[in-house]
Each structure stands twice: as structure tokens, then as C-alpha cells.
Design a protein around this nucleic acid. Sequence first.
DNA 1: CCCGTTTGCAACGAAAAGTTGCGTTTCGTG
DNA 2: CACGAAACGCAACTTTTCGTTGCAAACGGG
Lengths: 211, 211
Amino acid sequence: MKPGAGPPSSRVARERAILRATIEELARSDYGGLSLERVAARAGVNKTTVYRRWETKADLVRAALASVAKSLRPGPTTGSLRGDLMRIGRTIREFVASFEGQCLTRVRLLEHPEPELAGMARELHARSLDEVFSLARAAIARGEIATEADMMLLVELLNGALHMRLVMKNEAADDVVIARYVDVLLHGTDRLKSKTQHDVAKRKGARKAAR
Amino acid sequence: MKPGAGPPSSRVARERAILRATIEELARSDYGGLSLERVAARAGVNKTTVYRRWETKADLVRAALASVAKSLRPGPTTGSLRGDLMRIGRTIREFVASFEGQCLTRVRLLEHPEPELAGMARELHARSLDEVFSLARAAIARGEIATEADMMLLVELLNGALHMRLVMKNEAADDVVIARYVDVLLHGTDRLKSKTQHDVAKRKGARKAAR
DNA sequence: CCCGTTTGCAACGAAAAGTTGCGTTTCGTG
DNA sequence: CACGAAACGCAACTTTTCGTTGCAAACGGG
């Protein structure tokens, strides 16, 4: 009657296994193709155990998403905006590679079939963005950006590019790739432009280079 | 025996309707949840017509993807990198909102269940990037960027951010939003930083503002 | 040690997926 | 215009998957 405070019995361990299996299945299948029997097999339990505990597939996935409380924690500031962005990039890379990341990315695309689940996944991901605000304030204090909205802009661009590359294009993103993105975010094309003008100057003899 | 060169008979019209229905269904369902019967109903044909023409669901989706030959054509350069990026952003926005875009985005996440289909969708999307190369060359000629790889970097960031915003976060992206992204891509945080330093200078009296 | 709960197992019913046979329509062809 | 092959719709059918139920065994707390 009061198992809440008790030690983790075998029942909750089984439940954790099932939710974990759900996430892993959802990471390589998609919601429509998710089979509760495969989930049960992966969790090492009988399918009746799954069916008896959750009414529908949506309930199971809902519970599985709720169990993904592990948010992205980029940690304290590194002391520079560039360092912070690099760390955020690495954090995104690791998250996207994880089962939870793959799972969330898939569920978030279910807007039309399952709006509620998509909303849950969205909120779960948005929560990780809250952590970025502290880094934003540090960058503002250093005078590297003006507002927190600027930081959000940078993170949106970095996050989007990494997601596209890792999830949709299925290409790797090592630190060099991330650094390229970050450099654009910090300096835009201005650095690139000046480099080109330098080349032009070398080639054409510094004709208009003076101005 | 030689219907290839003939005028569009009712047979090909039916096939087009089925493939179109497949894309539309795939735009709001997902691959695992795609039902050939719903496709047939949407196309206004009997399900046997669909089953007889394509062996499996994968075959049908493969054919549907192949029929999406309409690539993203950003058109000729506007004369400035900023104008080109804005136009690319608007093109991405419209594509993502279309059935083909929704469909492609979903299919591209099927790496594990259906690697071949994911590869097709990926290639289809990559083809649209080829169009960007002409804009890149124009920008290089104007000295706004150094290499075509730089242009790809900018487009990857813009594309990723817009996809995240439109598809995953389900938020709109008007021209103002796109312009914010583009400004970061062009000038990075330098513009923002200088604005802040200006404020600091006003407050602290231009102490380190000179350099 | 006992009793309530939970699980596994197997069998079951229901629904969707996929197939087949046949009469009808359509379109190309002589 | 008439004929024949191919494709379609329709309905019935088989197969597979999904979800449920009954029951005996295992587990765990009191």
C-alpha cells in the first residue's frame, strides 16, 4: 500500500526496462512502425505485461518521454562566447547521437498524427535551452553579445545546422566542423571576405586594396 | 506495345494520382503508419490497383520520391549575398511548408528502418543544393565570400535553423526572422558586439573603445 | 508461512494487411 | 467499327498483426 518510499523493487525495474526499450525502439523505428511486441521482446518481458500497464501505444510513448528527464546541461561558462558555443555544439552532437536524441527527434515530427506527443518532445527539448540563458548572460556581461535573444539566435543556427548534418544528412560532425559553424556565427562572412580581398590584392597588385 | 511516346493516357494519370496521394499521406503520417488503403482512398482508386502495381510499401514510396523531381530553384543571383540568402531562406520556407517538403523531411529520418529510402530523400534534397553553387560563384566574384564551401556553410546554417523552426518547433518564420538569421551569417556577433561596446562606451566613457 | 499481486504462457477474437478470381471498362489496333 | 489485350473495380478470401483474456506459477510483503 505504500511502495512509494520503498527500495526499487523488481516491478519498477521492469517498468524502467520497458520505457528504456521503448525509447531505443523509437530511436530506430518511427512511431507508426513502433511495435509493442518488439518493445516487450527488447525489454525481456512478455507483451501482456506491457499491454496491461499502459492502455495504448500513445500512453506508453508518453510515459517513455516523461522518463527522459535528463536534460542537456552545457555547464558553466568557459569564459568566452566561442568556448561556450563549441561546448554547446559538442553537447548537441552527443545528444543527437544518443537514443534519447534520436527518439525525441522522431517524435517531434508527429505534429499531425499525435499532437500531444509532439508537444511533449518539443517541451522536453525546449527545457534544455533554458540552460543556455546563463551562458547568454555571461556573454552579455563580457560585451560579446547584446541580448539574450542574440544568444538564442546563435544557438538556433548552430543547433539546426548540427541536427541537419547529424540526423538528416547522417554525416559526422567533429570539432573542426563545429568550429567552422561557430566561426561563421562569431564573425559572419566578414573574415572570409577580407581574406578574399587579400587574395585579390595579391593577384592584381594592390590596386584598390588601399581602399 | 509502345505507350511510352503516346499522350498521357488515363493510366499514367491514375499513377500520378496515386503517387501524389502517397506524398500527401506521408506528409502528415509517417512511414510506419502509412496505409496503402488510405493512399488508394485519397487517390480515388481501389486498393488492388495500388497493390498490383507496386510490390511493397517501400516500392510505392520509392516511386513517389522519384516523382518529386521538382527541385528547389532559387533562381539567378539578386546581386548581393544578402539578397541571395534571403531568397534562399524564403525558398526553404515554402518548400518545408509544401507536401513534398513535409514528406521528404519524414522519410529522411528512416535511416535504420529503410536506409535506401532515406538515401533517396537525402539525395533529392542534396540536388537542390547544387543550385546554390551558381549563387556561390557570383558571391565569390563579388568578393563577398572566399570559396564555395563557405557558401555551403552559410546555407547549412540557414537551412538547419529554418528546418528546426518550421518543422520541429512548428513556429512560423516570416521575413523578419529570416533576416535576423541572415544578418548573423553575414556579420556574426561583431555587429552586436560593437553595439554593446557602444553602450559600454557611453556608460564608461570610451575607455577601451579606441582599440 | 500465507495471501494478494504480478508475471508468463497460450489461446483467443478483432482488425488491418495483403491476395485472388471474375465481370466490366478502357484503350490501342487493325 | 469491331476486336482483343490490359487494367480496373468489386467482393471474397487468406495471412499477419494487434490487442485481450483465462489460468497457473512466481514473487514479495506481512
